[in-house]
């Protein structure tokens, strides 16, 4: 494992921890899309089914279990926590996730490495992860809420994607025969969407700053 991959995993992990701490500390999930969080849970569960079939390393297993449990933890807070659930913007968070899930299912059935249950589910999770941030992006555009989505959370998510691209470049040049077109193309799309997300974040932040300045 190279330093880019490890740093990417750590920033991904930190982004989730930051989001959880934020929800726990402020007892609020205003501005957080439950639909995006649920898509991430679907992504992790469908991708990490191989926990039952293959062992790669202790690191790998621990991280997979962390991603699955933490995503369900965020969902639990947003749906069932007595105080936090009342702060959820359910009227604004209306993105139709079927528009993302259904095309990803078909694409995974058509374009995959091997037509088997586990492999198609893995491919589906790669495609779905690349677009799972969209409900969050739409919610941010609607509410212009930057109070709960801290600059840290957005920064860490973006950093995670950027570091994974560096990891792929590094592996491509150092590991003979290393190539994974499905992951590369999906990852590039995902990074482009995150750049858009970051752009709206900056716009929202600047707008909020103007509004909060004394006249």
């Amino acid at each position: 494992m190279n330093i880019f991959r490890f740093a990417g995993d750590m920033t991904h992990l930190c982004s989730i921890v930051v989001l959880l701490l934020k929800i726990e500390a402020t007892k609020s999930c205003a501005g957080v899309s439950l639909r995006t969080q649920e898509l991430y849970a679907v992504v992790f569960v469908s991708r990490y089914l191989d926990l039952f079939f293959t062992f790669i390393s202790v690191y790998n297993t621990v991280m997979k279990v962390f991603f699955i449990t933490s995503s369900f933890c965020i969902i639990w807070y947003m749906r069932h926590h007595r105080i936090v659930s009342q702060t959820y913007d359910r009227e604004q968070d209306t993105f139709r996730v079927a528009f993302l899930v259904v095309p990803c299912i078909f694409l995974a059935l058509l374009v995959n490495h091997e037509f088997s249950m586990v492999e198609v589910l893995w491919t589906f999770s790669i495609y779905l992860e690349s677009v799972a941030i969209l409900p969050q992006l739409i919610l941010l555009q609607r509410t212009f809420n930057v109070d709960t989505l801290t600059s840290n959370y957005v920064f860490l998510l973006g950093a995670y994607r950027a570091l994974y691209i560096l990891n792929w470049l590094y592996r491509y040049f150092t590991e003979p025969g290393y190539s994974q077109w499905i992951v590369w193309s999906s990852g590039t799309l995902q990074t482009a969407i995150y750049c858009d997300f970051f752009y709206y974040y900056v716009v929202s932040w600047r707008k909020n700053e103007r509004l909060s300045l004394p006249s």
Binding site: I56, H113, E114, Q180, I182
Partner: peptide
């Protein structure tokens, strides 16, 4: 496509 790729990333 040639075989199943090794999914060693997260």
């Amino acid at each position: 496509v040639r075989g199943v790729a090794k999914h060693d990333e997260l």
